[in-house]
Design a protein around this nucleic acid. Structure first.
Lengths: 131, 131
DNA sequence: CTGTATCCGAGCAGATACTG
DNA sequence: CAGTATCTGCTCGGATACAG
């Protein structure tokens, strides 16, 4: 929606809805999904995550990655560990809550992948029907 | 996060990504989620669906509802039954594929609802930490 | 390296009016 | 009732420059 792309990290246009829908939009957002799935595998540093996410899907801007991580951290899904060293080093990992969310999102993503052939054939049928 | 807005029902800005991500965005889009959940309960007519969706979340415009339904129909999730009567009557229901998707989305929505208290407390902690 | 601040374009999404 | 067409504002999200 808009799963625009989805709702976003900010509060944006979603002032008046069930509060949990907001969380749902956070975890299912364009970058939220990818971040959660990658962190489910193992903790990542900022740039590492940026590269990993870029490998599937398209490249993430620093801005959007930071925004996504902040939102997920605020929602209690992601843990941020900033080590006071130079150069800066920050590791991101999942909380227990985040792991539960990530597993569900991954399940849904895998289901979508498995069913892709059916979706494609449905699309061809639909498109052909109006030619 | 992108948590941003939901991706949406159209194709929009998502030209260059794994194809299944597109389907994921359709079913998790702002209106896609609500439509699927309501249709899981029983088939609905257009206006009926419009009212039902409006009761939770905010009102849907006719345009967005039609767009969402068309996208989900094209993806093979929703069945459209237009009866040639006057006044027009159109019923929407889920296909087998759509039912699977709807169940997963509902599961995720229910999980989010159950965990809302934890999310809220995480948010308060986060917000207070930077005061 | 890990971000933050600002600017700006693209297109999502609502309102409205109209058609079958 | 069930949509389509059009107009428009708003916000998302990328690019860039800069800071700690």
């Amino acid at each position: 929606m808009a799963v625009s792309s989805g709702p976003q990290t900010g509060k944006g246009s979603a002032e008046a809805m069930c509060p949990y829908r907001l969380v749902l939009e956070h975890v299912t957002s364009r970058w939220g999904v990818l971040v959660l799935i990658h962190l489910l595998e193992r903790p990542h540093r900022f740039s590492e995550l940026r590269r990993a996410v870029g490998r599937m899907g398209r490249p993430v801007s620093e801005k959007m990655l930071a925004q996504t991580l902040q939102t997920l951290e605020r929602d209690g899904m992601v843990l941020r560990d900033a080590q006071p060293v130079i150069p800066p080093r920050v590791d991101y990992s999942l909380t227990a809550l985040g792991r539960e969310a990530a597993e569900q999102v991954r399940t849904l993503a895998l289901w979508t992948e498995r069913r892709m052939a059916e979706v494609d054939s449905a699309r061809r049928a639909y498109d052909e029907a109006r030619t």
